[in-house]
Amino acid sequence: MLKRIFLLFLVVNVLSACSLGAQQTKTEKEYKIGILLSDSGLGDESFNDSAFRGLERARDEFGILFDYKEAPDGDFEEKLTELVEEEYDLIIGLGFSVKEALEKVAKEHPNQQFMIIDEVSELENVVSLTFKEYEGSFLVGMVAAMKSTTGKIGFIGGFDVPVINHFKAGYIQGAKYVNPNVEVLVEYANSFGDATLGGAIAEKQIAAGADFIYPAAGFTGFGALQTAQKLGKLAAGVDSDQFFVAEKAVTTSMLKNIDVAMYDIAKELKETGKIGSSTYVLGLSENGVGLADIRVVQLSDAENSQLEEAKEKIISGDITVEME
Rank of each mutant, 00 (worst) to 15 (best):
M1Q: 13
L2C: 06
L2I: 12
N13Q: 13
N13C: 12
S16A: 15
A17P: 09
S19V: 14
L20R: 07
L20Q: 08
G21I: 08
Q23K: 14
K26M: 10
E28Y: 02
K29M: 09
E30K: 14
Y31W: 14
L36F: 09
S38F: 13
D39I: 14
S40C: 12
G41Y: 08
S46I: 10
F47C: 12
N48E: 04
G54R: 03
L55A: 01
A58V: 06
R59F: 07
E61K: 07
F62W: 01
G63T: 15
I64H: 03
F66S: 03
F66R: 09
Y68I: 05
P72S: 11
P72N: 08
D73H: 08
E77Y: 06
E78K: 13
L80C: 03
T81A: 09
L83Y: 04
L83A: 04
L83K: 00
V84A: 05
E86P: 08
D89W: 04
G93Q: 08
G93H: 11
L94A: 07
L94C: 04
G95M: 09
F96L: 13
E100S: 13
L102K: 06
L102S: 04
K107T: 13
E108N: 14
E108L: 12
N111C: 09
F114I: 10
M115N: 02
I116S: 01
I116W: 01
D118R: 00
D118P: 03
E119L: 02
E122L: 10
L123D: 06
V126G: 01
V127Q: 09
L129V: 08
E135A: 05
G136S: 03
S137W: 06
A144W: 09
S148P: 13
G151F: 11
I156P: 13
G157Y: 10
G157L: 09
V161L: 07
P162Q: 09
G170L: 07
Y171R: 00
G174F: 06
N179F: 00
P180H: 02
P180L: 05
V182H: 01
N190C: 05
F192V: 06
D194W: 02
A202K: 01
I206N: 03
A207M: 11
A210M: 04
I213P: 10
Y214L: 05
P215N: 11
T220R: 03
G221D: 14
F222P: 02
L225K: 01
Q226S: 05
Q226I: 04
T227H: 00
A228M: 04
Q229M: 09
L231S: 11
K233F: 04
G237R: 07
V238F: 04
S240D: 12
Q242S: 05
Q242N: 07
V245W: 02
A246E: 11
A249E: 01
V250Q: 02
T251I: 15
T252N: 12
S253I: 11
K256V: 15
K256N: 07
I258L: 13
A261H: 08
D264G: 00
D264V: 00
L269E: 03
L269Y: 01
K270T: 05
E271K: 11
G276H: 10
G276T: 15
V281C: 11
L282R: 05
L284I: 10
E286L: 01
A292Y: 06
V296P: 13
V296E: 14
V296C: 11
V297C: 07
L299A: 01
A302E: 15
N304Y: 10
S305D: 12
Q306K: 15
K311C: 01
K313L: 12
I314V: 07
I315G: 06
V321L: 06
M323C: 09
E324I: 04
